[in-house]
Amino acid sequence: MTIHGAVIIEQGVTFAIVSVRPEVTRYTQRLVETRMALSSFFPNMPIILMSQDNTGQPHYYGRKDIVDFLKTVRLDQIPWKEYHIY
Rank of each mutant, 00 (worst) to 15 (best):
M1H: 00
M1P: 11
T2R: 10
H4M: 07
G5M: 11
G5E: 03
G5I: 06
V7W: 01
V7M: 02
I9F: 02
I9C: 07
E10D: 11
E10M: 02
E10C: 07
E10V: 08
Q11M: 12
G12S: 05
G12H: 12
V13C: 05
T14L: 09
T14Q: 15
A16W: 02
I17R: 00
V18E: 04
R21E: 15
E23R: 08
E23A: 14
V24A: 09
T25K: 04
T25R: 13
R26N: 15
R26W: 09
R26P: 04
Y27L: 15
T28E: 04
T28L: 15
Q29A: 14
Q29G: 08
Q29H: 11
T34H: 03
T34A: 13
R35N: 15
A37K: 14
A37C: 00
L38M: 14
L38P: 13
S39E: 05
S39G: 04
S40C: 00
F41S: 08
P43C: 12
P43N: 03
P43K: 07
P43Q: 04
M45C: 07
P46A: 12
I47F: 14
I48N: 06
I48L: 10
L49K: 07
M50V: 14
S51G: 04
Q52R: 15
Q52P: 03
N54L: 10
T55I: 11
T55Y: 13
T55S: 07
G56A: 02
G56W: 10
Q57P: 00
H59T: 07
Y60W: 02
Y60N: 02
Y61Q: 05
R63N: 13
K64S: 08
K64I: 13
K64A: 12
D65I: 12
V67T: 06
D68R: 14
D68Q: 10
F69G: 03
L70D: 07
K71G: 12
T72P: 09
V73W: 05
R74P: 08
L75G: 06
L75F: 06
D76R: 11
Q77E: 12
Q77R: 05
Q77S: 06
Q77I: 01
I78S: 09
W80Y: 01
W80C: 10
W80I: 13
W80L: 10
K81S: 08
K81W: 01
E82R: 13
Y83L: 09
Y83E: 03
H84C: 07
I85Q: 00
I85D: 04
Y86V: 06
